[in-house]
């Protein structure tokens, strides 16, 4: 039985009505989505819900979650999830984030980790790794859309989208997600200059995951992430790009599950 009583599809966090996917039983998994938002029909959500009680909100400004006028940075989002953890009085939570969600998860964990048991960051952005003339993350807002697709996917052919065939509502959500992504990540581009230093505070088990063909988060970049977090390690998923949850959902969920079990066994 699920531990949390959350109304279907909605959760109020300090008055902010977030859209949320809540399904499955098992250890609590707070899942923070990436730039594309969350699709409730995605296979990886079903796979995860066989092992976890999954709570996956849409960030403010994404999907149908409202965007407060005050919000304009990733730390605004981090405080929403700190509020959520506290409000529901959650403990022993696995916090996982993909891409932008990985950045948010890292910002949550460096502020307050006592409700968290472990952290999983898949293709996270958020740190500054290279020098001032090296762009760590390709400028997706200034690249041709087909080039962005090529960088994001191991197999871009499978990612072809036909906007003409989409409903008004689907297009509206895509446009809204894109605008909110830009609002939160425009400058400094895709990072918080102080996050890398702050990651040194983390004392919980941390797994970093990277799709082997990820054209946005490079091997070098993730290595800088790893080096900043005491005891963190990296696992690579073959034949996946920046969204292993889409291209290799089974392999991704297996890694997540193995990591949470391994650590539970140690602590047990």
């Amino acid at each position: 039985m699920a531990q949390l009583e959350i109304d279907d599809g909605k959760i109020a966090v300090r008055g902010l009505q977030l859209e949320v996917v809540h399904r499955g039983t098992g250890p609590l998994l707070l899942l923070l989505h990436g730039a594309g938002g969350i699709d409730p029909r995605a296979e990886f959500l079903d796979l995860l819900s066989r092992h976890f009680e999954v709570v996956a909100p849409s960030h403010p400004g994404f999907g149908n979650s409202p965007l407060p006028d005050l919000f304009d940075s990733v730390d605004d989002l981090a405080y929403v999830y700190l509020d959520l953890l506290e409000q529901l009085d959650l403990h022993d939570v696995t916090l996982a984030g993909f891409s932008l969600g990985g950045w948010i998860a890292a910002e949550v964990a460096v502020r307050c980790a006592h409700r968290l048991s472990r952290l999983i960051l898949a293709g996270p952005v958020g740190i500054k790794a290279g020098d001032r003339e090296t762009r760590d993350i390709p400028d997706i807002f200034a690249l041709p859309p087909e080039e962005v697709t090529r960088l994001v996917y191991h197999d871009p052919r499978k990612a072809a989208v036909d906007y003409a065939a989409m409903s008004d509502e689907q297009l509206r959500i895509i446009a809204r997600n894109r605008q909110s992504l830009a609002l939160y990540t425009w400058e400094p581009y895709m990072h918080n200059p102080k996050l890398r230093y702050r990651l040194g505070r983390l004392k919980l088990p941390v797994l970093l995951i990277r799709g082997a063909s990820d054209g946005l988060v490079s091997e070098q970049y993730l290595e800088a992430y790893r080096a900043a977090i005491p005891g963190a390690r990296i696992e690579t998923i073959a034949e996946a790009g920046h969204a292993p949850q889409i291209e290799q959902p089974r392999a991704l969920v297996e890694r997540m599950l193995a990591f949470t079990r391994e650590r539970s066994a140690e602590s047990g």
Partner: peptide, 22 residues
């Protein structure tokens, strides 16, 4: 001018941006 510079995210309201995608 290629599309990424013609339609930067948020330059127009969400509905107009969605419309332009199509």
């Amino acid at each position: 001018v290629p599309p990424q510079f013609v339609m930067p995210p948020g330059y127009v309201p969400v509905e107009a941006e969605a419309n332009a995608m199509r």
